[in-house]
Design a protein around this nucleic acid. Structure first.
Length: 416
DNA sequence: CGAAGAGATATGACCAGAAA
DNA sequence: TTTCTGGTCATATCTCTTCG
């Protein structure tokens, strides 16, 4: 018997130890980078070099193994597969550490692997009811674990499993309610926050309180409609619990009103809604569906964003102290803004709007010029100045009837 | 009792060949 | 070619039994 041949038959290539991290890493390659198994292999081998050597690999993992593994994860609706592929296509989001590692490795290896500009992975075959998980999901892990440790019996496991499955079926089959849908959604949303706001509130990034530890992120697809409604309801009832949502408003007046009344470090941001995908929900829609009123609040004008507002969706941010300073330095701006009047009203309601109206109307060209000056001082990019300016025109009641005319736009443009 | 062991069952990694 | 699918084999986990 030829010994070397014999070795080839008996010495089997080792198996990859697919822990959750490696699965996520592999899925990130497929999700964010153009498909090229040779490049995927090079990156994977390099990143997990030590680990692979420990398990006995000498020439890295075969391309086919990576491909099969990814398809297997998809076929079995594996937890990590869903985690990566059902999450928003956001390169600055939860998967950014993986993406950064991949980019670094590609640069080191001098491999030119294009990144995808959008998600092209078909997730329609993903069935959460089948989903095999190495880690229970964040949603149901508590129920599952307590039930198991409490009773330990097979019957109980299955009844719990049944309920978990039901949650998933509901989550999948029911289209998510209250979503604003394309076309209806306001192009711009405004956000107010201060030092007391929960979550991460930066000038260029917002993260909801529940996801401050971004590793714990889950998409709304991963939870039931009931759970989603509970989060939504808690949020609009302003309950003191961590929320997966970020509040925004379609009008700039609402956040300005809150900001001038709660000045401590208040920031106002302007957000471009189309960069948020479909993770924006109308509070009005929710209140209508559930016939809900909280005092006089009916959700009008408020939109909740799930998870985070990535930096590329934030057009600009300014501190309310900057706004006040500008008003102090420019009488015409102060006269239009009426920050003191706004601050004197407890609620942003009819009476505040009436009070703003009392100031009297402006000629369109005049108001356009003043608003334009303000927006340029606040460094609102020119391309959004029209949208923001017109919004302010209505909110601040710059003329009693009708919309802004051509002269308003001309006045606005004159300042940039 | 509870620890240890044996057997049964489930899961994970992967291949080879079919299908597209 | 690439992608999908049925099946194998090894290992992990569960369940039941035995024995000190």
């Amino acid at each position: 018997m030829d010994l070397s041949d014999g070795l080839n038959y008996t010495v089997k290539e080792p198996n990859v130890s697919w822990n959750p991290e490696k699965k996520q890493f592999l899925c990130c390659l497929f999700k964010f980078f153009e498909k090229d198994l040779t490049a995927y292999k090079a990156v994977f081998d390099s990143v997990y070099e030590d680990d692979l050597r420990t398990f006995g690999f000498t020439h890295g993992v075969k391309e086919s193994t990576l491909n099969t593994q990814w398809h297997d994860l998809r076929r079995s609706s594996h937890f990590e597969w869903g985690e990566v592929h059902l999450s928003p296509f956001d390169k600055d989001g939860r998967w950014s550490p993986f993406i950064a590692a991949i980019r670094r490795t590609l640069a080191t290896l001098r491999i030119d692997l294009p990144e995808k500009a959008r998600d092209d992975i078909d997730t329609s075959t993903f069935d959460p009811t089948l989903h095999t998980s190495s880690q229970p999901t964040s949603v149901s892990s508590n129920h599952l674990n307590t039930a198991l440790s409490k009773y330990g019996g097979k019957e109980c496991f299955w009844c719990v499993q049944e309920r978990v499955n039901e949650e998933y079926i509901q989550a999948r089959n029911k289209p998510r309610e209250y979503t604003t849908g394309k076309g209806i959604l306001e192009p711009l949303l405004y956000r107010w926050s201060n030092v007391d706001s929960q979550g991460v509130n930066n000038k260029n990034l917002y993260i909801a309180g529940l996801f401050v530890d971004w590793d714990k992120y889950f998409s709304p697809d991963m939870i039931s409609q009931e759970k989603f409604d509970e989060y939504f309801s808690n949020h609009i009832h302003r309950k003191e619990v961590s929320s997966p949502f970020i509040s925004t408003f379609k009008s700039m007046l609402a956040p300005v009103h809150r900001a001038v009344r709660n000045q401590e470090g208040a920031i106002i941001s302007i957000i471009e809604s189309k960069k948020l995908g479909d993770l924006v929900y109308s509070a009005r829609g929710f209140c209508q569906k559930h016939q809900l009123r909280i005092g006089r609040y009916n959700g009008g004008g408020e939109y909740l964003i799930w998870g985070k507002v990535p930096s590329d969706a934030i057009i600009c941010s300014f501190k309310v102290s900057t706004l006040k300073q500008i008003a102090d330095e420019h009488d015409d701006i102060a006269e239009i803004l009426q920050l003191r009047t706004i601050a004197s009203y407890k609620h942003n309601q009819r009476s505040l709007k009436d009070a703003l109206e009392k100031r009297g109307g402006y000629l369109d060209h005049t108001s356009g010029t003043i608003i334009g000056k303000l927006l340029s001082l606040l460094q609102v990019p020119f391309e959004f100045s029209g949208e923001v300016g017109i919004g302010m025109y209505y909110s601040w009641r710059l003329r009693k009837r009708g919309g802004p005319g051509k002269a308003f736009q001309e006045g606005l443009n004159a300042c940039y």
